[in-house]
Structures are given as structure tokens and as C-alpha cells.
Design a protein around this nucleic acid. Structure first.
Lengths: 335, 335
DNA sequence: GTGAAAGCGCTAACAC
DNA sequence: GTGTTAGCGCTTTCAC
């Protein structure tokens, strides 16, 4: 059974393609009787416009690509949801590109993968840096997320990681904690967001008159919960003395919670724990995690807003937007 | 700056479009010198084929739609990742359609949303039932996931929920538990997977000579962790006596864990807890959750396999596939 | 207000 | 081996 085409409807209704097209697009100046006749033909034939053909003709695909490291990472899945909802509201659909933090997959995103397929792309790079992205700048509108790369030429949205980390430290300081550990320097990841967070952490400590203790900066050998659990356990075994731990993300915080439970340290009485990203994990854990919360909604909205402006023809240098953050206080920090 | 087209490359290289096309598609019979010349032109001009145009010409979009209730639900995000990876391996890209369990959004999936846009769709319905889907059967290849609907006419993949629930009960029985509660009958959701799971639960109990106690079937007023926490707490307050709880999904199990912690019941010593879906939540919780594990990889692979067969022209009645399940034993069930 | 026809950029017969 | 050309299905001037 062949798909029914616009012309089939036109023949059935005894009109031209243009008229059918007018009806489909609710073009106002169509005689009511004609409109009804055409609509009847559409219904009888079960006609559905071929979106691919429409695209070729209009040059607008109505799709955007969202390229993120992993769909099933809580932060990215939550952000994706926001972006998908926002995109739907703006009349776009989103196609997912999972890079798995692989350099060549990331390059492919900017290279040929999306040619003529999408109107624009929102990309959260991990491997690719500022320089490389600037060089490969694609022919299609692009908005960058995250801290890994921020070429001046490209639109970019993020939270102020330095300030957010400082706010986290503040919260802990206010609660009377003085020996605040930072859990989460993964080797080779200092350039990205972790570096920014570490910076904010150190700044605020110094501002409070506390000299950052290098022993309190705890490296982790990977990105998993288990890695973070082991890292904190090892620190405890080494006798590192701390009364709070600011974690690079919620996963690390969950690992920290596990380690503290094993070590018999009570949370938050003996040790306060602060997560980052405010993912579902934070509310699901027990005790529920206090977490630094990027405004994901604002992130999605801002990114899409910039992208749509580009799609609609905005030219000019990259715009760099900072969206708000807050702290979702739950049970792992003292009341 | 206008996009460069195939014909631009052809002119630059002084050949016909066909030759350029041959080079792009690695058609073997092209004189090496010519090939080099064309390739040079492609590189110089930075030519990228317009995928939309290619689609119109070939009739193949190379995309599939994945329609699920929520991208950021752990089960669906993990399944999505598997499906996205599998699809990539097969040369398809995936576009996401989030239904939010909304009936009209679900109908739209089968209706006009995907016309000519994708080669096929994988759809996990929640609201739409067997009859309605059978009636709206779309013009595009379709594979259904989940238990909400399974029209004979449509391909369908799921796990054997009845058997999986029975296996879960078995595990608990073997551990010596006799008063096993079932947490998770949400009102109006009896028709879906919860109903199947409840069935398997009751069957196995009866087979073991235990009469299912209606008091042990605990209703929950929603789908959130908080709902499940409250539900279990309420049961405890009512004095319901149980030594194990089989939960409808991991989220409910997390809620149960919170309730048990509040009530001071130790897990698994006093109460064993069994989750369902084996999502990341299960390994992230403390204690780590034992969970019934659908083989998500097999689910993704099977669904995509069936879909691709349909796309490639397979006709005939719906095929209904059961994929394996297992139980990931962690800390919430006795050793 | 409605119709005819020229594209959109690429593919694939079919010639040469 | 390489070039010509007729579509793919829709949109959109531009006449009528």
C-alpha cells in the first residue's frame, strides 16, 4: 500500500496541490466549501504530509541535535528532559547523539553527522577543548554546554562553578565546619568543571582565613560511585581529619555516604556531605543529600533560546551566559 | 555563505554529479585519478551531503523514533542508552519522543508525528491499550515495549513478568521469609505490568502453600518515592506484619528502604527488600538493593532486530518475544 | 481565491 | 567508467 501523497489528495478533491497545501497550512483565504471538500479527501485517504519532503522544500528541518556524554547519567538525563520539553514547546524535536565522552564521537558531532539534518545543535563536550571546537566550528548553529570548552566565537551556557563551590563552602562554614575536604579531582580532569569547583572551594576557604590543606583535596581514580567510595575510605584509613566533604557531583557524594557508613561516621553530625548537580540521586539517597543545584530549567531554556536565535539568523560573536544555581538543602548538612 | 552542493563539487572537479556521487559512496569502479580529483574538490569546498535530500531520494531516513514515558526515569534512560547504542551500531539514529504518559501524546506517536520522518518506531505505551493501538496501527514499522498493550498484529518485546515475580518470591521464600508484602498496586494501573507482577507473586505463594494475605498487598497513591515511603510507613503503623517486601520497581523499593529506616527495622535482617528493574538506583542505594533485572541489552537488541526486519520488508502477524530476566542480588536480601 | 510549474539537493536508471 | 536526467513529495512564487 503506497503512501498517499499531496497530489493524490488534490486529485481526489478535484483541486490543485496548492489548494490542498493551503488547507493543510490553515491558509485563511480558502472558500469554506472547498476547504471542507479538501479536508474530506484528506481524511478519507488518511493523508499525512511527508516531513522529509517538506524539509527539503523549506530548508527547515525542525529538529535539533542534543549531543551529550551519556543519556543515562542522572544529570544528563534530567537536563535532556528539560531540553526536550523546551524544544517541543518551541516546535522542535530532538535527536540524541551520545558521545560516551569519546573524542572522535565528539568530533563527528561537529563534523558531518548533522549536515542538513538538524537546524542546530546543543553540545556538551568533554574531550574537545576550546581550540579544537573553535577550529572545527560547524556550518550549523551551535550552543555549547559545560566548562570543557568555551571558544569566544560560540554561544555558551553554564553556571558559575567557582561561585557555586564558594557558596557550598559557605554553607559548610556557617554550619561550623572547618576541615572541609574536596572529593573529586579525577586525574586529567582539572581543566573542566572540577577545576573551577576546586578553585571556588579554595578561594572561599582562604577568604574565611582558612589555609587550604592539600591533604583535604582527595583524588578519585575514576568516575564511578565505587571509585569515590574507595577514595574516601582510603583517606579515612590514612587518618585524614575532616568534618565535611564537598563532592564534585552527586555520584561521588553517594560514594562518600557509603564510605562514611562503613567507617561508622554519622552524617551530618560528624561529617557533612555536599553533592553537586542536584539530581534525583540526591533526594533518593538516605540520608537525602544536600546538593548544589544548577538551574537546569534555566540552562535548557537559555541554551534553546540562544540556539533558536542563531537558527533564525542571528550573527555575531559568541554569547556567554551564566545561569543561576542554588543549594538544595536536605539531610546531609546540619540544620 | 551558501551551503555547497553536490553539483558545486562536480563543477569544481569538472565531472558530473554521478561521478561525485560514486566517490562519496565508494563505488569501486572509479578511475583513481578521477577519484582523487573529486575528493580534493570535496575537501576544498568542505562539501557535506544534505541528508534530508538524500532521504527524499532514497526513501530511507535512517532514523527511528523511541517513544517512552520519561527520559529521566532511570529505567527508561538506561534502556534508551542501550537502544541508542544498538541503533547506532545498525546505522540508525534515534529521535526521542517523550510522552509523559499522556494519552494524547501517545496517540500522536502513532498518528502523524512520524510520517516520513523515521523508518520505524519503538514505543513503550502506558495509557494506550491493546485495542486502541491495534486500531491506530500506523503506516510505519512499529515495535511495542512493556505490558500495557500487546495487539496480535504488532511486534512486541517484554520480559515474563509473572515468572520474574515468582522468581523474586522464590528468592525470599528460600531465605526463609513467609510474610512477603507486595508494594506497588497503584490504583488504575492493575492492567499493566504491576498486575502481571502481582499475579506471579500470588501464584508462587500459593504454589508454596502460603495463602496470599490481602493485607500484605500494599497500595501506593502515586509513582514517587515519597508515595511509596508513606505507603509502607502507613502499613507499619497499621501493624501489618511482614518480613519481606517485593516492590513494583526500584523507586518504590528506595521508598520502602526509607520507611524501614524511619521505623527502625533493619534490612535485610528483619525485612528483606526486593526492587525491580535493576536500575542504577539499586546499586547506588544503601544498603544496595537486590533487584529483579530485565535483560535490558536483550530488550534493546530484540526490539531493534524486529524493527529492522519490518523496515526491510518483513510482513506478517505480530511477533511476541520474551527476553530473559535475572535477579541482581545485593544487600537487601539475606545472604 | 486558485492553479501551474519551478525548484529544494540527492539518487539511480539508463544512455553513451 | 562516466554523464544525463527523471524523479522523491512538498513549498512557493507568479500568473490567472
Amino acid at each position: 500500500m503506497k503512501r498517499v501523497r499531496l497530489i493524490d489528495v488534490a486529485e481526489r478533491a478535484g483541486v490543485s496541490m496548492k489548494t490542498v497545501s493551503n488547507v493543510i497550512h490553515d491558509y485563511p483565504h480558502v472558500a469554506p466549501a472547498l476547504r471542507a471538500r479538501v479536508q474530506a479527501a484528506i481524511d478519507e485517504l488518511g493523508y499525512r504530509p511527508n516531513l522529509t519532503a517538506r524539509r527539503l522544500a523549506t530548508g527547515r528541518t525542525g529538529m535539533i541535535a542534543l549531543a551529550i556524554p551519556e543519556i543515562d547519567h542522572p544529570y544528563f538525563s534530567e537536563l535532556s528532559r528539560r531540553i526536550a520539553e523546551e524544544a517541543t514547546g518551541l516546535g522542535y524535536r530532538v535527536i540524541f547523539e551520545q558521545t560516551l565522552s569519546d573524542a572522535s564521537a565528539e568530533r563527528a558531532v561537529l563534523h558531518d553527522r548533522e549536515a542538513g539534518l538538524v537546524d542546530g545543535v546543543i553540545f556538551h563536550p568533554v574531550q574537545m577543548g576550546t581550540m579544537e571546537i573553535a577550529r572545527l566550528a560547524p556550518d550549523v548553529p551551535l550552543v555549547l554546554l559545560g566548562e570543557a570548552a568555551m571558544p569566544v566565537t560560540t554561544d555558551h551556557v553554564m553556571i558559575d562553578n567557582v561561585a557555586a563551590a564558594a557558596d557550598g563552602v559557605d554553607l559548610l562554614l556557617t554550619a561550623g565546619r572547618r576541615r572541609i575536604a574536596f572529593l573529586g579531582t579525577v586525574r586529567d580532569d582539572i581543566t573542566g568543571s572540577t577545576g573551577q569547583r576546586l578553585l571556588g572551594y579554595q578561594d572561599r576557604l582562604i577568604a574565611a582565613g582558612i589555609r587550604p590543606d592539600p591533604w583535604l583535596i582527595l583524588p578519585v581514580d575514576g568516575f564511578s560511585i565505587e571509585d569515590s567510595r574507595v577514595a574516601l575510605l582510603r583517606a579515612i584509613d590514612r587518618g585524614v581529619d575532616f568534618d565535611a566533604v564537598l563532592c564534585r557531583d552527586d555520584k561521588f557524594a553517594i560514594g562518600a555516604l557509603k564510605a562514611l557508613a562503613t567507617a561508622g561516621r554519622s552524617v551530618p553530625a560528624e561529617v557533612a556531605v555536599l553533592g553537586w548537580d542536584d539530581t534525583h540521586l540526591a533526594s533518593y539517597s538516605s540520608p537525602a543529600l544536600t546538593s548544589i543545584a544548577p538551574d537546569k530549567h534555566a540552562l535548557a531554556q537559555t541554551a534553546l533560546g540562544l540556539l533558536v536565535e542563531r537558527i533564525e539568523g542571528h550573527k555575531g560573536v559568541g554569547r556567554h551566559r551564566i545561569v543561576p544555581h542554588s543549594i538544595s538543602v536536605r539531610e546531609t548538612t546540619p540544620g
